[in-house]
């Protein structure tokens, strides 16, 4: 197993990111269910719906553990067509959002607005940890890119040497 210190560092960052940020809100009891329906492929304006799922739904699910969330991703012949976010209520007809060609942050704001969810007051500790984790992820990505560039340069150098030794 990975060392505990390393594991805990990443875990605390992930949990802080889950608890803090847009979507950290408690839904009123009349919101019954949320269902997303969109194709597998992003092409044709479906990226926003997917990102809404990936970026905000974990937070909504964390603060509303018993709230059912359904994600249907269409494949094959059903792939073409709309992308919809349906919010079911106990006391009124369901509200359907056409999420095609929409930005994920807009969709999240609209969802919270329609459901009249109460935002969870931000925890400064979580905010700090989440920011640190975001920075850590960024630094890791940059480091991975730098390492890959270094390896690529090494490969090219080797290739040049090989060609130089024969052709010149």
């Amino acid at each position: 197993m990975v060392s505990i210190i390393q594991r805990m560092k990443v875990l605390q960052g992930k949990l802080a990111t889950l608890r803090h940020g847009p979507g950290a809100a408690i839904l009123p009891p009349n919101v019954q269910k949320l269902s997303l329906n969109f194709p597998y492929r992003n092409k044709g304006g479906h990226m926003g719906t997917r990102k809404f799922w990936q970026l905000y739904l974990p937070r909504i699910k964390y603060y509303n553990p018993t709230f059912p969330i359904e994600v249907i991703r269409r494949e094959g012949s059903d792939a073409a067509g709309p992308a919809t976010i349906t919010i079911h209520f106990t006391d009124k007809p369901p509200h359907i959002i056409d999420s095609k060609n929409r930005l994920h942050s807009e969709l999240c704001a609209q969802f919270l607005d329609i459901t009249q969810a109460t935002a969870v007051p931000p925890n400064p500790e979580d905010a700090k940890a989440a920011a640190e984790y975001a920075e850590y992820v960024k630094a890791e990505e940059a480091s991975a890119r730098a390492k890959e560039a270094k390896r690529q340069a090494k490969r090219e150098e080797k290739e040049r040497e090989r060609l130089g030794g024969v052709a010149m």
Partner: peptide, 11 residues
């Protein structure tokens, strides 16, 4: 389990 369900939402 509460955390894991949040991470696996919609799966």
């Amino acid at each position: 389990v509460r955390y894991l369900r949040a991470f696996e939402v919609g799966q």
